[in-house]
Simulated scan of single mutants.
Amino acid sequence: MAYRDDAGLNFLGTLSSEELNDLVNILIYDKGGDKRLTENLTFSDNYKKYKPNHKMYWKEIAEEIQLFGGNTIVNLLFRFNKGVEYKEILCDVCNKLKVNYSKYAPIDMIENCLLQKILYDALKNMTPDQIKELGVELGIDNFNNLNAQALIGVFQTIFQAGGFASYKLTLVIVNATMKALTGKGLQLATNATITKTMSILTGPIGWAITGIWTAIDIASPAYRVTIPAVIQVAYLRKLSQNRDAIKQLENLNL
């Protein structure tokens, strides 16, 4: 099977090999570091020829996501070993995690709903002092009397506004989520401006994700791939959309 042209995944072709590395690891290795029995990526000719120059075989990476997604959609009799488009996979993951979203919304908005659900579940596990500290680290004014529900509205505004604050919040959520799901944080998450914010959310998001993961009856092992892969793709899209703002801040910190 070849990669199906996919508006939700075509942006992967604009990313560097370093940026694609975490996604590739999710697709190939399980949480224990062993190769997944069901992965096909490492058998592709381009992978064998160019690894670890991931950008040279980004279509094979995208195809692998589509193939895993085809094994999680309900109608397996007709979809087994057939890839499905990313938006269908994203919506399937959102349904599995009980995310409130509209399937008619743009992909990035659905991804934001997914990230907000993870964050909201984490906020419910945080003390008022932790919520206040998080507000300080994110530069939110007048947060003293904000509860978890009110902060969700603030975070939604941050997501929609774009720029570095949007990217920073996404990075913090995804880094903590990846630690809970795969045992490793994001390799790119080294910027000193986000380190403390990450430490605040790592515990609460870990508890929230563990609770969600335990509650899910994962009928197909493919969900152990599609859930972290979709969350990783959401992060990479936010990274791609906010490059200019990220570069400007990094230049200021030089």
Rank of each mutant, 00 (worst) to 15 (best):
D141R: 10
L236Q: 03
N144H: 09
A150F: 00
N71D: 08
V24D: 03
V172M: 09
S16L: 12
F155E: 03
G153S: 12
T182Y: 01
R4I: 13
D5A: 13
N40K: 15
R4E: 08
T197E: 10
F68V: 06
N81T: 11
A165L: 08
Y47W: 14
K124Q: 13
E133M: 10
N251V: 14
L12G: 06
E133N: 15
G203R: 13
E133D: 10
I118Q: 01
K96T: 15
R4L: 05
I231R: 02
D244R: 15
L123E: 01
N144F: 10
E133V: 11
L115F: 03
Q232A: 02
D5H: 15
K82V: 09
G153R: 04
Q248W: 09
P221N: 14
T72W: 06
D121Q: 12
I152Q: 07
I209V: 15
Q241M: 14
G211V: 01
G206T: 11
L239Y: 12
Y57I: 06
V154P: 00
N71L: 07
L134Q: 11
Q149L: 05
V172A: 08
A105K: 07
I107A: 03
L37T: 12
K87I: 15
I227Q: 02
I65G: 02
I73N: 04
L76H: 12
Q187P: 03
I194S: 15
Y235W: 13
N40A: 11
P228E: 00
M56I: 00
Y57A: 03
I118D: 00
T157K: 14
K196N: 12
R224K: 15
L252G: 07
M109N: 10
I118F: 04
Q160K: 15
T177W: 02
V84N: 06
K196Q: 15
S102M: 07
V136R: 12
Q232E: 13
V174C: 07
I89E: 01
P106Q: 04
L252P: 03
T182Q: 07
P228M: 11
Y235L: 02
V233D: 00
W58T: 11
K168V: 01
Y86H: 09
R237A: 05
E39M: 12
K247G: 00
T72G: 02
E250F: 10
Q156Y: 05
V174W: 02
K49I: 11
E137I: 03
F143Q: 11
Y47Q: 02
I216K: 11
I152F: 01
V225T: 14
N145F: 09
K247Y: 12
K103I: 14
I246R: 12
L41G: 02
E250N: 14
W58V: 06
Q116M: 13
D129W: 01
R4T: 14
V230H: 03
I61G: 02
E137R: 13
L146S: 15
Y50Q: 05
C94T: 06
K87C: 08
R224C: 00
L201K: 08
I28Y: 03
N144Q: 13
L115P: 01
K98Y: 11
A161K: 15
G13C: 08
I246T: 02
I89N: 07
G33I: 07
G162D: 04
L115G: 01
P52R: 07
